[in-house]
Write a protein that binds this DNA or RNA. Structure first.
Ligand SMILES: [Zn+2]
Ligand SMILES: [Zn+2]
Ligand SMILES: [Zn+2]
Ligand SMILES: [Zn+2]
Lengths: 130, 130
DNA sequence: TTAATAAACGTTATATTATAACACTATGTT
DNA sequence: AACATAGTGTTATAATATAACGTTTATTAA
């Protein structure tokens, strides 16, 4: 019974912007885009971002300090994320590959760690930029 | 014929600190540690860090904005990096697993990207913290 | 060896990313 | 109503990173 998540006003505003964007968005660029809607401070953005990440609605691209909407509906609360990132045009694409995900999820480091989560970022040139 | 890399003064100072550290170091914590050696500005740290990363002597842990020394001598110029990160004690351990590395290096995203590089970060609890 | 080129350095200033702290408001439960 | 929880708005500040400029040192090649 997956309950429909109800978003707060600010969360919805921030999510809308990220979902409409063609590429990853930075927190302060989101902020500038929503000032007309009465959001004035970074805190309001970062709070919304945190919650949206928790819910798995968006992901943070760590190497870019930027945020993208989750495109894979089966992406279980951001526990296993993979992205391809173009080093030329900055395009980011979420990778949903069941085999990859399974392979990594079952990977256990020898030294005694049991992983709860991973994030994988591939870098290269996209089709367009190649 | 792998030539011995000669490091500049500042690069050597920064590398020494990172290599001696038990865990990942932040740029500004490196800075505070080397002020006695006459390094006064963030630029000097960041420049050294950039070069050391290029050389594959250190890696950046993207999710922490912190830097660790490379422990795997065969880590080819930071093209294929994987880490395990403890969410409790902040410990970071570089993973050298030939199979994993091979698997990921040969992974090609469907949408036409040919990857040059990847970075993988696993999160969980280390032996000690479990 | 000297001129040219590239790499590293030192410094000041500034941009970018992120969090702390506090008072207030809305919402749902007992 | 009393309480707890989540969200909001705001001001201030911390932490991370780069721009720009001029100088110095090392490397190369004429
Ligand atoms: Zn996702
Ligand atoms: Zn591209
Ligand atoms: Zn390495
Ligand atoms: Zn630990």
């Amino acid at each position: 019974m997956t309950q429909v998540q109800i978003l707060s006003r600010n969360q919805q505003i921030v999510l809308d912007i990220i979902e409409k964007a063609k590429g990853p968005l930075k927190a302060y660029s989101i902020l500038f885009n929503v000032q007309k809607k009465g959001i004035n401070a970074p805190q309001q953005i970062y709070r919304a971002l945190d919650k949206l990440i928790e819910m798995g609605k968006i992901h943070k691209i760590e190497s870019k300090n930027a945020f993208v909407a989750c495109r894979s509906s089966d992406c279980e609360i951001s526990k296993a994320t993979a992205f391809s990132i173009c080093e030329s045009c900055e395009m980011v694409d979420e990778i949903s590959d069941a085999k990859l995900s399974k392979y990594l999820s079952s990977f256990n480091h020898k030294k005694g760690m049991k992983f709860k989560r991973f994030n994988l970022e591939f870098f290269g040139l996209c089709k367009k930029c190649k």
